[in-house]
Amino acid sequence: MTNHYELLYLVSAAYPEEDLAAIKEKVKDLIKKFEGQITFEDSFGKKKLAYPVKKAFHGYYLLYEFDLEGEKLKDLNNNLKLANEILRHIVVSKKPQSAQQRAEKKMAAKAVQIAETQVVEDKEKDKGKIKLEDLDQRLDEILGGDII
């Protein structure tokens, strides 16, 4: 029985970006070796790590989605562990998604973000108004006090 999985792996930024293609190819071959079929490929680019891993402070996050037989997952995991280029990896089972569903999800996430930023902006605007009024009052008080 084949299941759908998602693999996210971390490559140290010590490797130049030209080498990434070779590493990608290596992981791809590894998945294919265990008769996995790649359905989706993504990259999150160079990012700062939350904590140093093997003295690396930056890394590239790369992602594959693939179909694989459940029994072969353990072997794939072991092989990924042995790859020197990969600092960390995680394989998670996932529901298969079509390209359309993926786009819809992205849109929904964006909508949530936009709504939130608007709420924050509104709050900040209110704050600004109150502060201005307060400032005027305070200025009046201070000036008035000085004159008397």
């Binding site: 790590l49 939350a50 904590y51 996050y61 600092l87």
Partner: peptide, 11 residues
Amino acid sequence: KRARIMSLLPF
């Protein structure tokens, strides 16, 4: 916890 393992979030 998954994000922590992948160094996306700090422990």
